[in-house]
Design a protein around this nucleic acid. Structure first.
Lengths: 199, 199
DNA sequence: CGGCTTTTCAACACGGTGATGGTTATCTGT
DNA sequence: ACAGATAACCATCACCGTGTTGAAAAGCCG
């Protein structure tokens, strides 16, 4: 039962990779909403009809791109050493730092997708990822966190705010370093969130 | 020099009003990104070519819709009586309340435009409006607010967070009342912003 | 090699785009 | 109320992207 998993056809992975690559390149060159399937497949060097064998539309392909990027994020954060020796807010600074490093690594794409000319769906996925990787774990560390709508409101506020800062940071050509941004957020914003959870 | 302003042709206002109305209705029925100029003009009962006499694309019309809505917001807040007798955070609760009332009044449209299937540009405009009507004025009331990137970061965080809450509120069918939402925000979130400004 | 899957290719009908020029309808100032 | 101005209408144009089809070519695997 070890080899039960039939190896997937390598052509599938290759094709989808080329499509993701093409989409991410084109998204940095023009508004996502004005891209066409034709354009993406041309850039990928593939036939237009091949696209439909894998996705039903550009948003599905975009979702795939997000999955890949956020997977990298997740791994980067998981292998980040926990620091229970530090006081509450400072403990989380490395995680915040990883997010900014990741944004910087894929700067052009994130700037394009999170900005005014970006995509609402991608922004929502990005925010959900932040909730899952940053704000849910912090909640779990709090003993008596609030319940129901109050908790939901807090999580939404802080993940949306974080995404807003990320957007501002990229749109303005990173006016402060990734480290400085992480420090300011950890010092000025996170304590308030933690205090909110400890009600 | 009093009558120097030539009265604008009433047909223009009427036509643009019909187009705005049609767009706002259609946006609640299907994803904004999939709307066509043809569809909007059909719904408005106008000829397709008329559209191009006023706008160069759907986003320009959308901008017009935003201008109208945010103008209503602005008026509603301006005629809101100032309460300098109340302590800092509570003083602003009526303003927050007006925002939620306005969202509720145009609930379907805002839910459609701010949600996952909404439009990035509209969200950006909405956030800028919040900054201008809520968070800039609060900054002006603070004597020694921080400067440069630190202030920008705080404003972005809180306006984005506020927009995030508004989106959550609409997406989930208003799990709490407008009054309750305003109260929670004023009590739990605004004090932190004011504290940040008073550094 | 042989059987299977993926990719390619040409063709199709359909719908939206942006722009043209000419006609009709509506508004404004006198 | 009329004449000129301006806005809206309409038919038409070439162009591009869509989503789907069926059959041929290429690639993968045992």
């Amino acid at each position: 039962m070890s080899k039960n998993e039939a190896r997937p056809d390598p052509r599938i992975g290759r094709t989808r990779g080329l499509l993701r690559q093409a989409l991410m390149a084109l998204a940095t060159e023009k508004r996502f909403g004005s891209l066409s399937i034709q354009e993406v497949t041309r850039r990928a060097g593939l036939n237009r009809s091949t696209f439909y064998l894998h996705y039903s539309g550009l948003h599905e392909l975009l979702e795939d791109c997000a999955r890949e990027l956020f997977g990298q994020m997740r791994e980067s954060i998981y292998q980040c050493p926990a620091r229970p020796d530090l006081p509450s807010p400072e403990r989380y600074e490395p995680y915040v730092r990883r997010v900014f490093d990741h944004l910087q690594e894929h700067e052009a794409f994130y700037r394009a997708m999170l900005g005014k000319r970006g995509d609402s769906y991608f922004r929502a996925l990005f925010q959900e990822m932040l909730t899952e990787l940053i704000f849910e774990p912090m909640r779990d560390d709090a003993p008596g966190s609030p319940h129901g709508s109050q908790l939901e409101l807090a999580k939404r506020f802080y993940s949306a705010g974080f995404a807003g800062i990320a957007t501002w940071w990229l749109e303005n050509g990173r006016p402060i370093s990734a480290g400085e941004a992480s420090r300011q957020i950890t010092r000025d914003l996170l304590p308030d969130y933690l205090r909110l959870l400890d009600i």
